[in-house]
Amino acid sequence: MSHSTQYYSARRQQNWGRNQNTTRYVSNVKLGPVAHTVLVALMITVLGLIYLTQATRATSYDYEIDRVDSKISELAAQKENLEIENARLTSLSTVKNSTVAAGMTTPSQTSYTQ
């Protein structure tokens, strides 16, 4: 009676067998549950800090916007006042009472170019 032996090996082992460059890395550092908890807490803290930084930055932009808006309002009010002053200075009553107008005379006759 002939006897034959069959060798079964895992598929990965078969692959390793074909590719000799593949290596398996196993870290020597082992993290326990406390370390994991601390790491997660640190990550949450960092994320919170990032959020806070961004929120604060957004708020600082809001103050900047408010400052610029106030400046715009200030300048708009100044422009408005200057336009009114300009309109008053060029109004008919001002022009009529000006020294320039006082020095003007009515022409004796008018000529028209055809």
Partner: peptide, 8 residues
């Protein structure tokens, strides 16, 4: 508190 509008 100063009535400055915020975008949040």
């Amino acid at each position: 508190v100063r009535d400055v509008p915020l975008t949040i």
